[in-house]
C-alpha cells in the first residue's frame, strides 16, 4: 500500500473537486431519494384511501388549515438566498486561502505530460477513449449526450412525478438517469481522475504509479477471433454484429419499458416518433457499458472494422 502515492493523487489541487464529488453526489442522491421514498409512502396511503386523497394536501411538508398558502419573498426567500450567498462566499474564500490553484511549468510542446489528462469534467470522455475511437468518444458520444439530455422532456410521457420527489411513480426514468449520471458519467470521471496513471493504465488506489510498467494485453478485433481476415467480409461481418446488437438491445429495452402494467400505460401514451427517439438514445447509451464489458471480459478491440471507421 503506497499511501504517499494515494495522498499525491488525492491532494493534487485539481483532483480536489473529484474528492468533493465523491461525497456530494452520494449525499445528494441519498438526500433526494430519502424524500422520494417518504413521498412514495404517502402516495401509497393516498392510493389506498380515496377519502384521504380528497382532503390531504398531498405533500409530506407540514400543513395546517389556516396557514397562509403563500409567503412573502421578502423576507422568507431573500434571507435564504442571502445566507446561501454568504455561505458560498465563505466556502470559496476558505478553499482559496487554503489551497493554491495549480500552476505547472510553462507549456512545452516537446515535453509530453504522462499521464496527460483533460480537465476533470471531461475525464469521463477521455476514459471512453479506452473503449472507443476518438471520433466516437470525443465527438459523437458527447454530441449525443447533449442532444439526448435535451430530448428527455419530450420523450418522457409519464405525467406523474411533476414537481415532487418520487421513485415509485417514475422507476424507469429515475433508474435510467441515475445509471447515466452516476454509473456512466461520475464514476468514469472518478476512474479517470483517481485510478488512471501513466500511459492511461489502471492503477488501483494505493499502488505506485510505475512509469515503466508494461501491460501485455492482446486486444483482438472480433472478426479476427472468428477467423475473418479479408476486408469486405470484415465489413459485412461487423455490420451484422452491430445490427444484431441494435436489434437485441432494442428488444431488451422494449421489454423493459413494457414490463409492468404501469409502464405499458405510459408506453401507450407515446407517439411513434417519441418511441423511436427514446429507443435510439437508450440503445446508444447501452452500447457504452456493452463495449466496456466486451473489452474487459473478452479483450475485444473493435467489433466493426472498416477502412473508414472502426467501432
Amino acid at each position: 500500500m503506497d499511501f504517499h502515492q494515494l495522498w499525491t493523487i488525492v491532494s493534487t489541487p485539481d483532483n480536489v473537486p473529484i474528492v468533493l464529488l465523491l461525497f456530494l453526489v452520494p449525499f445528494y442522491t441519498w438526500y433526494g431519494m430519502r424524500q422520494a421514498f417518504a413521498n412514495d409512502r404517502l402516495i401509497a396511503e393516498l392510493e389506498a384511501n380515496p377519502e384521504m386523497a380528497k382532503t390531504h394536501h398531498r405533500k409530506t411538508q407540514p400543513y395546517k388549515t389556516g396557514w397562509a398558502k403563500e409567503v412573502h419573498v421578502w423576507p422568507y426567500l431573500l434571507r435564504i438566498e442571502f445566507l446561501a450567498a454568504i455561505i458560498v462566499t465563505v466556502i470559496l474564500m476558505v478553499w482559496s486561502i487554503t489551497l493554491n490553484a495549480p500552476l505547472e511549468e510553462p507549456s512545452n510542446p516537446t515535453l509530453t505530460m504522462n499521464p496527460s489528462k483533460a480537465p476533470w469534467y471531461f475525464l469521463g470522455l477521455q476514459e471512453m477513449l479506452v473503449y472507443f475511437d476518438p471520433w466516437m468518444a470525443g465527438v459523437v458520444m458527447p454530441s449525443l449526450i447533449i442532444v439526448g439530455l435535451m430530448v428527455i422532456p419530450y420523450i418522457d410521457t409519464n405525467p406523474l412525478g411533476n414537481g415532487y420527489y418520487t421513485y415509485k411513480q417514475r422507476k424507469f426514468s429515475i433508474l435510467t438517469f441515475i445509471f447515466g449520471f452516476i454509473v456512466l458519467w461520475v464514476s468514469m470521471i472518478v476512474i479517470g481522475t483517481l485510478i488512471r496513471g501513466p500511459g492511461w493504465m489502471w492503477f488501483w488506489p494505493g499502488t505506485t504509479w510505475d512509469h515503466n510498467r508494461l501491460i501485455f494485453e492482446v486486444n483482438r478485433d472480433l472478426p479476427d477471433i472468428f477467423g475473418i481476415t479479408t476486408r469486405v467480409p470484415k465489413i459485412i461481418f461487423g455490420a451484422i454484429v452491430v445490427g444484431l446488437y441494435l436489434v437485441a438491445a432494442g428488444i431488451g429495452i422494449h421489454k423493459l419499458i413494457t414490463k409492468t402494467a404501469f409502464n405499458r400505460r405510459i408506453y401507450a401514451r407515446m407517439s411513434v416518433l417519441q418511441y423511436v427517439v427514446m429507443q435510439t438514445f437508450l440503445i446508444i447509451m447501452l452500447a457504452l457499458p456493452v463495449k466496456i464489458l466486451a473489452r474487459l471480459m473478452f479483450r475485444i478491440k473493435y467489433i466493426w472494422v472498416t477502412p473508414w471507421f472502426n467501432i
Binding site: G32, L92, M93, I97, W120, G163, R170
Partner: peptide
C-alpha cells in the same frame, strides 16, 4: 484561486442542479 475553485464549484453545482431537476421531474 477563487476564480479557479469557483469554476470547479460551478461545474459541480450545475450538475447537481440538473440532478435535482431530474429527480423532481421538473422538466
Amino acid at each position: 484561486n477563487m476564480h479557479r475553485w469557483g469554476a470547479h464549484l460551478m461545474v459541480i453545482m450545475v450538475e447537481l442542479h440538473m440532478f435535482r431537476v431530474f429527480l423532481t421531474g421538473s422538466y
